[in-house]
Computed example of a mutant assay.
Amino acid sequence: MRVGLFVTCLVDLMRPRIGFAVLQLLESSGYEVVVPESQTCCGQPGYNSGDTSAIKTLAMKFMREFEGCDYIVVPSGSCAGMIKVHYPECLKADPQLAEKMQAISERTFELTDFLLNVAKLKVLPGDFKGTITYHDSCSGLRELGVQRQPRELLAKMPDIQLIEMQESTTCCGFGGTFSVKYGEISTRMADNKCRHAEETGADAIVAGDLGCLLNIEGRLRRRGNLHTKVFHIAEILAGEDKK
């Protein structure tokens, strides 16, 4: 089975080890993984700003790059939500293209959803020891229903204790262009998220979206917290947290 890995912009540019962690997890599940070199942004920032014409171009490009894959896996709820939910919407004026995109979107999965429900991964290579708290990113939760999946995967790791933070499902304030347009509101939301995470006393904050993690970690450090670690769940599951 061929799995296409949509790396995402932030992973590629800011923390590529997440991409390698995802690759390790997929290959350990027995899949042939392909990573189209021509892949680019999913277009969510443009979509959020009303540029739907550019999204149509990106959606058709995505189809060409990944149509030969049995599955497409995305280590980001926001990018996966863009592909699964909004690409078909943007192409609905052309029924033939919309139908083709819908078929591809149905083969597209957020990482933890794929690992739990499709790959049915039993053994995880990671060996993290300690306490973590989990932040539920908005798009993954509200557009794709991703909430129990990461927790069930983490429960398979015997040396991890999950401590739920207050308001784990509340936005961290990033929201793509939201944090740029409404900086003061975003900062207050990030402060709230950091405070709730710190109150758990957990060793690390974990999430499935790098945008959220960059926002949370940046605010943690500005608040003077230099000890709480921040990881993408792929890093924890694959054992990339030590690199």
Rank of each mutant, 00 (worst) to 15 (best):
Q147L: 15
M60P: 09
R223G: 12
H232A: 01
G30C: 00
S137F: 14
L162G: 09
T112S: 01
D70E: 15
I236A: 02
E99S: 12
E65H: 11
R221A: 06
R219F: 08
V11G: 02
S76V: 02
Y134P: 05
C41F: 11
G201C: 05
E27D: 10
E106H: 13
A103M: 09
E199V: 10
E143L: 15
L210F: 07
P36K: 07
L5G: 06
T40H: 10
K229E: 11
Q44Y: 03
A238G: 04
A190Q: 05
A238V: 06
R195Y: 08
V230E: 06
S29C: 09
E164F: 09
E184Q: 10
M82G: 04
L214N: 05
E198P: 14
E67F: 09
T8M: 03
E240Y: 07
T133K: 04
C172L: 04
G211E: 02
A204W: 03
S78N: 05
I163N: 11
P36Q: 08
L58S: 09
F109Q: 01
K122W: 12
K84C: 03
T112C: 05
K242S: 15
I55N: 07
G19S: 02
G176V: 05
Q96P: 06
M82D: 02
P95G: 02
F128Y: 12
F20G: 03
L214V: 10
T177G: 11
A238H: 03
Q147I: 14
F128S: 01
G208Y: 00
V22F: 01
E217P: 05
D159A: 13
A21D: 02
I83F: 04
P88G: 03
S38F: 14
L25M: 08
S49A: 15
P75W: 01
K61F: 13
L220A: 08
P45A: 06
E65Q: 14
E32P: 00
C171G: 08
I185Y: 11
V206S: 06
E217M: 12
Q102H: 14
E65F: 08
